[in-house]
């Protein structure tokens, strides 16, 4: 998910060309108080006019507790944003309050109620404690994300390169996401020039179970994609597992075997997921398969 500041028209006009899966237009922390009104108008007009290809369009609005949040939500729903991202989510009630505003706006502007999705960003200790409640608070919620900067400040510690201070939060968010059946997205890595560390961190969070990572610069998109793209060996293995599974089903048998070993159902599911990722990242193409 590529982060795009909401007050920079130059960047907004073609943010989709870099091939990220989603674009997050920000009305919150990257916009100064004096420019909140102008940014809201810029993002509104951009969403209504510019064709962003296949990128999912997410907008990070200001919290409802600020003078800007309500109007942000109304404008962004009217503009047709696919996902509203709520920063600094602490309780399930935050989700419900936001959902109410979204629904009001959908009704007012003739948008099918329920069409606008939500994403919650957890950026503090209370949010981590309430992670599952937040993640399951609304059917509109598609993902829960971690915002590390504010979280660390809240924890009264600082950010480190290896990220031990984020361990608990990361684990909690992945678990909450899975329990609620939604996606989980990791926080940004701000050192744009340190690709090696970015890759290291992305590998680690992928292993933890995260579905994706936010990036702040187009140069970071490819390295993150590469980490999430299955290797050739993984793909071939997954294809073979699925072939064995289909063959067993055709035989009417519930027992799947490959290379003399039994394959459990979870392994088959994991293989399906691997192939999904492979297609999504264009590591293989369905039309190429023999």
């Amino acid at each position: 998910m590529l982060f795009v500041p909401g007050n920079n028209p130059g960047m907004m006009s073609d943010a989709h060309i870099y091939g990220s899966d989603a674009l997050m237009f920000d009305l919150e922390d990257s916009v100064t108080l004096r420019e909140k009104d102008a940014a809201r108008l810029l993002v509104y007009h951009a969403l209504k006019t510019i064709h962003y290809g296949e990128c999912e369009r997410v907008v990070r609005v200001n919290p409802l507790s600020t003078p800007f949040g309500k109007l942000d939500i109304e404008a962004m729903v009217a503009a047709g944003a696919e996902v509203i991202r709520l920063p600094k989510t602490e309780t399930a009630q935050d989700i419900l309050d936001t959902e109410a505003e979204i629904e009001r706006a959908e009704q007012k502007y003739g948008i099918p109620v329920g069409q606008t999705r939500m994403m919650a960003a957890v950026e503090g200790a209370l949010g981590v404690v309430n992670a599952y409640k937040i993640a399951s608070a609304s059917p509109r919620l598609v993902a829960i994300a971690l915002g590390a900067e504010d979280y660390c400040a809240n924890l009264k510690t600082s950010r480190s390169l290896e990220g031990s201070e984020l361990q608990y939060a990361r684990g909690a968010i992945v678990v909450a996401a899975r329990a609620a059946g939604i996606d989980c997205i990791d926080t940004v890595f701000s050192d744009v020039n340190n690709e090696e560390q970015l890759v290291k961190e992305t590998r680690m969070i992928k292993q933890l179970g995260f579905d994706g990572k936010s990036v702040i610069n187009p140069r970071q998109i490819k390295p993150v994609h590469r980490v999430f793209t299955p290797t050739h060996e993984e793909i071939v293995k997954a294809q073979r597992i699925l072939a064995a599974s289909e063959e067993a089903a055709a035989r009417g048998s519930g027992v799947v075997a490959l290379d003399g070993k039994m394959i459990d159902r979870p392994v088959v599911i994991r293989a399906e997921r691997t192939l999904e990722l492979a297609y999504a990242s264009r590591a293989v193409f369905e039309e190429d398969e023999v």
Partner: peptide, 8 residues
């Protein structure tokens, strides 16, 4: 170049 357009 470090311009993301150029690199693309």
């Amino acid at each position: 170049s470090t311009n993301p357009h150029d690199l693309m």
